[in-house]
């Protein structure tokens, strides 16, 4: 599965996600952990940002806060112009179901529901008819070549299959923001690659994405790679024009 090279993120547009001066302190006193120390990050429509950094550098913390699953100690999280740190619980829940797709580090399917039901549930909660939600779910499974698993329960699937179902769930419907924490963890490299191609094509179609990964080969699918260290952004790459690429360095080799 491949995608066309992505469009340049359109910086004139409003970012889908803005993280402003984000801090997160876990615990207090002697056991206090500064998981994030003043992180700023904007993610634009069409842009896929990879976050890399050593274990414990705050990647998952950043993603859970960006997805509204955890609250920052200070700072603002703005999703499509709404400051979600100020939104009430109901509005927050609706936003999470409707606009944000989330793939967790541990894939976290509901054990009592089949693959298709797991995918359809958030859509149904959001008012989509059961019939429509099911057909969307089947289409999402098909897209990941998992159609045959639609009626299996999580404990009847391999880790990699569960992971892909979780990804299908995160991508179903019209998600404006897709947050993926090590989505390729349980996958072989070929399957991991196809997941990345799928994420890439969602972003090319206009979604904003953040991908946390330890794998440079997967991070390389992103438009921008942000490096976290000890809860702070220490560096980031920008994309360049691929055409000019090999001419300069080739001479040195």
């Amino acid at each position: 599965m491949t995608t066309q090279p992505s469009l340049q993120p359109q910086k004139s547009q409003q970012p889908v996600l803005q993280l402003q001066q984000l801090t997160r302190i876990h615990g207090s006193g002697a056991t206090e952990v500064h998981a994030l120390r003043g992180v700023n990050l904007d993610v634009f429509p069409g842009e896929l940002v990879a976050v890399m950094g050593p274990s414990g550098s705050g990647k998952s913390t950043l993603l859970t806060i960006a997805g509204g699953l955890d609250a920052p100690t200070s700072g603002r999280v703005i999703v499509e112009r709404t400051d979600i740190t100020k939104a009430d619980r109901k509005a927050m829940a609706a936003l999470r179901r409707r606009s944000i797709g989330y793939v967790f580090q541990d894939y976290n399917l509901i054990p009592a529901l089949t693959a298709a039901e797991n995918i359809a549930l958030p859509r149904e909660l959001d008012g989509t008819s059961a019939r429509r939600a099911r057909s969307e779910a089947l289409a999402a499974l098909e897209e990941m070549s998992l159609g045959h698993l639609a009626d299996r329960f999580p404990d009847e699937m391999s880790g990699g299959q569960q992971q892909r179902v979780a990804i299908a769930r995160a991508l179903v419907g019209d998600r404006r923001l897709v947050l993926a924490d090590e989505p390729t963890g349980a996958l072989d490299s070929e399957t991991g690659e196809s997941v990345l191609a799928l994420l890439r094509s969602r972003c090319d179609a206009g979604a904003a994405g953040i991908l946390v990964t330890h794998e440079p080969r997967f991070a390389a699918w992103a438009d921008r790679v942000v490096f976290l260290r000890d809860g702070a952004v220490v560096d980031q790459t920008a994309r360049s024009e691929a055409d000019s690429l090999l001419s300069g360095q080739a001479a040195e080799r």
Partner: peptide
């Protein structure tokens, strides 16, 4: 870190070229 920046950047570029090459083949 300065090397990692450079290396990952090169990987991003190669990956885009690869996506193009795959699209051309398909």
């Amino acid at each position: 870190q300065s090397q990692r920046h450079h290396t990952v950047k090169a990987m991003q570029d190669y990956t885009r070229l690869k996506a193009q090459a795959l699209a051309a083949i398909e």
